[in-house]
């Protein structure tokens, strides 16, 4: 049996057993770390492999949150129903939005996704005023039924993150993964050797959106109280981008390493020195871009090089 499998199985067992030995703050820290690892991994699937930089990923986190709220608080269904509906709704919306938007390249795609996320945040804020319903709660926020088991959320996040990591590993080993990498490097050439580029991009976008929807649903249920500004917060997207970049775009482990590193550093620093911390993050980003543009994992491994400039 090779070493990687042994390490993998051991760490899985350790992660599963963790709540049996620790509680309170340690579990909270572990849960959030696992969530951020998952979010960054979601972002990496399209943006890391195919290099379509999505600046609006948080929109699916927010959609998932509000779907969960509607299902659980308004329709009084179970969390599991909410989780499935959040995944389905996010995935379908991602297909509808992604198919036209993914025709845009570079900064245009980034700006369009950003614009869509901001627009939807405002719609969520204004929905009740506008329609005269009291459905989403607007800026007053929305409250979930309470679940006090911290182990419950730990396991849900663990399962989600295991899921998206598995999908990434399978992608890396499949023709689909090659298609995404080819799109990153030369989209026209990829199309020219038979890759249905529009479909590959939309698939990656929709898969990552469904997971983001589930993360949103789960985190909101955990926090029990959400507002449009909290679940559609552009800083959530920015964190995913930076974590992935820091760890290495288009690698399986990069986003996980970047997310765990940045989240733990921030946990140590930012409660006490928020501005110093943010300025430091800025310096780290500048340093990474200038000195190791392939990220931590990419630089260690030699990753795959930057796509060349289009001719």
């Amino acid at each position: 049996m090779n070493l990687r499998i042994v390490i993998g199985l051991t760490s899985c067992a350790a992660l599963i057993a963790l709540p049996l030995f620790f509680g309170g703050y340690a579990i909270r820290l572990a849960t959030l770390t696992i969530m951020w690892v998952g979010l960054a991994t979601c972002w990496n699937l399209l943006s890391g492999y195919a290099r379509y930089i999505d600046f609006g990923s948080v929109v699916y986190f927010g959609i998932g949150s509000y779907i969960a709220f509607l299902v659980m608080a308004r329709l009084e269904q179970s969390f599991w129903v909410a989780l499935i509906l959040a995944a389905v709704a996010s995935g379908l919306i991602a297909l509808a939005i992604g198919i036209p938007t993914l025709r845009l390249k570079g900064a245009y795609f980034a700006i369009a996704t950003f614009a869509f996320a901001e627009a939807l945040k405002q719609v969520a804020l204004e929905w009740d005023n506008l329609t005269g319903m009291s459905l989403l709660g607007g800026s007053h926020g929305a409250t979930f039924p309470i679940n006090t088991s911290s182990a419950f959320f730990y396991y849900v996040f663990l399962a989600l993150t295991a899921g998206i990591l598995t999908i990434t590993i399978l992608t890396e080993r499949s023709a689909f993964g090659y298609a995404l990498k080819a799109i990153a490097q030369d989209e026209d050439a990829a199309e020219g050797v038979g890759v249905n580029t529009a479909r590959a991009k939309a698939q990656a976008y929709a898969i990552s959106a469904s997971f983001l929807g589930m993360y949103g649903a789960t985190e909101s249920y955990w926090l029990t109280y959400i507002t449009p500004s909290s679940v559609f917060d552009v800083h959530i997207t920015i964190q995913m981008v930076i974590m992935t970049l820091l760890g290495g775009m288009g690698t399986v482990l990069g986003p996980a390493v970047g997310a765990a590193f940045l989240y733990l550093v921030s946990e140590m620093l930012w409660a006490r020195f928020l501005y110093v911390y943010m300025a430091m993050v800025g310096l780290i980003i500048i340093g990474v871009i200038l000195f190791m543009p392939q990220g931590i994992v990419g630089s260690l491994r030699g990753g795959f090089p930057k796509p060349h400039k289009e001719a």
């Binding site: 501005y275 110093v276 300025a279």
Partner: peptide, 24 residues
């Protein structure tokens, strides 16, 4: 001349540094 993502992430880093140094 590098891929466009490099420029917006670099300038995002610059944004963080300037804004937070100004806050301090």
């Amino acid at each position: 001349g590098a891929p466009p993502i490099m420029s917006y992430i670099l300038t995002f880093g610059i944004h963080l540094v300037i804004a937070n140094v100004a806050l301090l």
